[in-house]
Write a protein that binds this DNA or RNA. Structure first.
Lengths: 327, 327
DNA sequence: GTCACTGATAACTACCTCCGATCAACACGA
DNA sequence: TCGTGTTGATCGGAGGTAGTTATCAGTGAC
C-alpha cells in the first residue's frame, strides 16, 4: 500500500451535492429529501456519497431504518446552508439585475403609518413600477422585524431608529406630532405649545406594542413627566381620536394622520408644539446586504419625491442612496 | 416566436463557473485568470459565458484589448466572492474535521505576553498536538487584529476586551499588575498598596501602540490621576525594568512577566496592590465563525490547564468552550 | 500594413450526473 | 417464524457537462 498522506484528489463539491446534503440534513430521510429538491433518490444518494468522498468526511450515519447526521455532518450542514444562502442571494440579485422592479415585493407597514401613507405608496408603485407585485402586511414593529429576518417580508415601512443589527434603515422623512384635544380644552387649537404642557395632560395612548405609544411615552418622559400618563388605551388611532372627541382626554397624532382622523368629527381641536416640536422619523428598512438593496434605495428616493406633498420634512437623499452604476 | 416571459431554463451555476468569474473579475484578463486558477483559457471563457447565460446577465464587457466588468458584474462579483468564501470555509472545516490539530496554525501574540507565555504554549502544542505546525508572529494588538481580519493570522493571544465586531474572544486568565520600584523607593516591596498611590508615582511606560501602556494609563485614570504620568518610554518590558533599576522611576508589570524581568537585577523591589488589584485579562481571539473554531476552543481549554502553574487566575471554562459532539 | 496579443470558437474526449430498475437490510406484524 | 413493506445502496446506460488542444478573428501599437 502507498504510505503517503491520506490525501486523495479532492475536487470542488458541486452545488447540487451541497443542496442534496442540505436536504438530507433537513429531512433526515433520503426519499423525502429527494422529492423536496426534485431529483431521484438514487441521484441524491450518490450526490451525498460523492460529497462525503470529496470532503473525506462521513456526514450522514445511515441505517436502513434511521438516518442521522454525524457530529461532523452537523457542523458542515451549517456551513452548507450558509453557502446555499449566499448562492440564493446571488441568484436573487441576478434576477433583480435582469428585471428590476418586477415580481413580488412583500412590504410590511406599521398600523400608525399604513392608512396615511399607503395611498401615496400604492399610487407611486402602480404608476412607476407597474410590474411590481406589492403585497402589503400591516403588523407592529416587532412582528415586522421578525418577518424581515425570517425572509417573510422584504421591505418595511416604519418608525426608526430601530437599532437592530442586520437591518439597514433608509430614512424617508420626519413628521411632527400634534396635540389633539376636545373643543373645550384650554390648549385647544393653540400653536407654540411648550412640551412641558405634556406633564399635566390627560393623555390617551394606543395599546402596548405600538411604537407610537412608546414614542409618546418617551416624549412625556423627556418633557419631565415622571408618572405614566396612561388612563385608557385604544387599538387604533381612529378609536383614539373618537375617545378624544368624546372628551375623555387628549392625544398625540403624527401629522400625516391628522387630516384623515380629525375630519370625521367637529368636536376636535388641533394644537401644534413650539419649535422644535416632538417628531418621529419614518424610514424603509431592509435586511443588510439584501439582494435587491439597490432597487429598494431607488424606491426610497422615488418615495421621498412623492411624499413631498404631505406635511412632513423629507430627509436629504443619503449619499449611499443611489444605485451604484445603474442608469 | 413564443411570447411567454423572458425566462429560460436557469440551471444552478457551478462553483467552477463562479471561481472562473471571480478570477476574471480580479485579473480583468482571461489568460491570466485562467492561469491563476489552473485551467485553460477557452475553458474559463466558456465557464464565464455559461454563467452569464444561466444568470441571464452580462457580467463582463469584452473587447479583444480590454476586459471590464459591467455594473451588474461588479455587484454580482461581490456576491460571487461571498459564495466562494463560504465554500472555502466549508472545505477548511471539513479538513479540520478530517484531521484536527494538523497543518499550519498562525498564532499572533502581543509583545507583553509573548516571552512569558510562549514557553508554556509551545511545550503544550508540541506535546499534545505534535502534528500542529505553529507559526508565531509577535505584533501589537492593532496589527494582530488586521492580520486576523485579512486571514494572515488564525489565532491571537492578547489582552481583552477588544470590542471588535467579527472577533470572538476566548478568555484564558486574569493576571494582576505589580509595582516594580528601585530599592530606595518608599513603596518598595510593600504589599497592599492602595491604587491611589499611583497618583503620585513617577511611572515609566511602554511606547505608544502597546496595549499595556493604555492599560496602565487607564488604571492611573481610574485611580484619580488627571495628568499623564509619562516621563519616558521604552520599546520593551526588559528595557523598562532596566530603567527602573537605574532609578529613573517605577513601572507596572503583569505578574507573568515578573519573574523573568526582575531576576536579572538586584536593584529592584516588587510591590503588590491591595485587593482587588488592577489586572488585565488575557484571551485567545479568533474570527467569529472561523472554520476551526472548535479546535481553537479545545486548545484554549488545554491552555487553561497548562497555565495553572503560573501566578494567574484561570477563568472558568465557558459553557460554549466544548467541541460540540467531538469525542 | 504588419504584428503581437486579445478573447472566442471548433472539435474532441473524459467524466459526471441523472434516471429507472433492482437489490439488500431492517422492523414490524400475523 | 416468516412474509411484507420500507429503507438506502447499487447497477447500467443515456445524455450532458466541462475540460483539453488547435485555431480563428478582432484590435491597437508601431
Amino acid at each position: 500500500m502507498t504510505v503517503g498522506n491520506a490525501g486523495k484528489r479532492r475536487p470542488l463539491p458541486s452545488l447540487s451535492q451541497l443542496r442534496a446534503f442540505a436536504a438530507v440534513a433537513e429531512h433526515l430521510h433520503f426519499r423525502d429529501a429527494a422529492a423536496a429538491i426534485g431529483m431521484s433518490q438514487p441521484a441524491l444518494s450518490g450526490a451525498v456519497s460523492a460529497l462525503e468522498d470529496s470532503l473525506g468526511v462521513t456526514l450522514v450515519e445511515r441505517t436502513t431504518r434511521r438516518v442521522l447526521l454525524s457530529p461532523a455532518g452537523e457542523r458542515l450542514a451549517v456551513r452548507t446552508r450558509a453557502v446555499l444562502a449566499e448562492v440564493g442571494a446571488l441568484l436573487e440579485e441576478a434576477e433583480a439585475v435582469r428585471a428590476p422592479f418586477t415580481g413580488v415585493l412583500r412590504l410590511g407597514v406599521i398600523p400608525t403609518v399604513a392608512p396615511y401613507l399607503l395611498p401615496t405608496v400604492l399610487r407611486l408603485v402602480h404608476d412607476r413600477y407597474p410590474a411590481l407585485d406589492l403585497q402589503v402586511h400591516e403588523e407592529q414593529t416587532a412582528s415586522l422585524l421578525d418577518g424581515l429576518a425570517a425572509g417573510r417580508l422584504d421591505l418595511l415601512l416604519l418608525a426608526v431608529p430601530l437599532g437592530v443589527p442586520g437591518v439597514t434603515e433608509i430614512p424617508l422623512f420626519d413628521e411632527d406630532f400634534v396635540l389633539v384635544t376636545p373643543l373645550d380644552h384650554p390648549l385647544g387649537g393653540r400653536a407654540g405649545i411648550p412640551r412641558e404642557a405634556l406633564k399635566e395632560l390627560n393623555l390617551l395612548l394606543l395599546d402596548e406594542g405600538h411604537c407610537l405609544r412608546d414614542q409618546a411615552l418617551e416624549i412625556c418622559r423627556e418633557a419631565g413627566r415622571a408618572d405614566a400618563p396612561v388612563t385608557t388605551t385604544a387599538a387604533g388611532l381612529s378609536t383614539l381620536v373618537q375617545l378624544v372627541a368624546g372628551g375623555l382626554g387628549c392625544t398625540l397624532l403624527p401629522r400625516t394622520a391628522l387630516k384623515v382622523e380629525t375630519s370625521r368629527s367637529n368636536q376636535l381641536l388641533t394644537g401644534s408644539f413650539a419649535h422644535p416640536a416632538p417628531s418621529r422619523r419614518i424610514a424603509l428598512a431592509i435586511r443588510t446586504g439584501a439582494a435587491r438593496a439597490a432597487e429598494y434605495r431607488q424606491l426610497a428616493a422615488a418615495l421621498r419625491s412623492a411624499l413631498r406633498v404631505l406635511p412632513v420634512r423629507v430627509v436629504d437623499d443619503d449619499p449611499y442612496g443611489r444605485t451604484p452604476g445603474a442608469a
